[in-house]
Design a protein around this nucleic acid. Sequence first.
DNA 1: TTTGAAATCCGTAATAG
DNA 2: CTATTACGGATTTCAAA
Lengths: 172, 172
Amino acid sequence: MNDQVDETDLAILRLLQTDGRATHAAIGKAVGLTGPSVYARIKRMERDGIIRGYTALIDPAALDQGLVAIVRVSLKASADEQEPFESIIGADPQVLECHDVDGEDSYILKVRTASPQTLRRLLADLRGVPGVTRTVSSIALETVKDVTATAVLGPVAEARDSGRTAEPAEDR
Amino acid sequence: MNDQVDETDLAILRLLQTDGRATHAAIGKAVGLTGPSVYARIKRMERDGIIRGYTALIDPAALDQGLVAIVRVSLKASADEQEPFESIIGADPQVLECHDVDGEDSYILKVRTASPQTLRRLLADLRGVPGVTRTVSSIALETVKDVTATAVLGPVAEARDSGRTAEPAEDR
DNA sequence: TTTGAAATCCGTAATAG
DNA sequence: CTATTACGGATTTCAAA
């Protein structure tokens, strides 16, 4: 499943997550390679889908999207209700995340809006989607942390535990 | 509060969110400016904190961080319990988001781990933090959507039309 | 993986609108 | 005040070994 990602690759990924516009030469100096070597590794990882792309991190407040809310959505338990919901979610740029979760809820969303009023409108839209029976919103008073960078913990090769598939973590 | 961000800036931000490594020349061609003009605008937005940085988007599975969970945390209602919690959250690279929310919960986290076992370990750490009285986890069976790009809906700091523009501003 | 090289790009400066 | 042109230096990208 895991493509070959050695430690040099991990170091490159770490640097690219810190600065997505770092030059190949600078990356090379940090990892002990030359510019073209770094270039080749990056191109390979882009081809393999390990690097999905690059993006600028924008201050949401500057785009008048300063309000964050987590929305838990309950959907009627019939298979054909998911399709319209997910396509609407995908089309709304104010919905940044949508996770199909186990447990009590059907989906958990992270949304960004300009104000409580625009959030209200968004929630009204969500509740209008066929199958949606309930939404519970939690407005973020403050976002303590919000990073996009996936943790780069170490070489992927080692298989410490590959137990079975996800079972609900029963915590309370 | 809003810095001056005109429609050209918005177009640049949109392009940079789509491709954080786009060249100034390419951006310029798209928005009708030359490379140096784009460069000046970008530098200004970086200085103003509108552009916070650049990052590569990495496939979490390639870094063995394929499991996503949303964790709701309840904290004892005393002011001095927040500090240790937030500092621990900030130090853990597996905690990607932490929102201080209103409502029933104290915090809502988004975490990434390798497996249910590592999630279990993370939750055990969280429950060990002084003041934490309860955690409720929802494991993502599938992440339907997960974007970092803030929606760029339209001009923020009011724009009086200077002629016809391609993209009308919509209030949402 | 490295070196080399060509095309492109960046970033500054000076100028013009 | 912002955009454009001009230009030296850096970077990307592709060869070849």
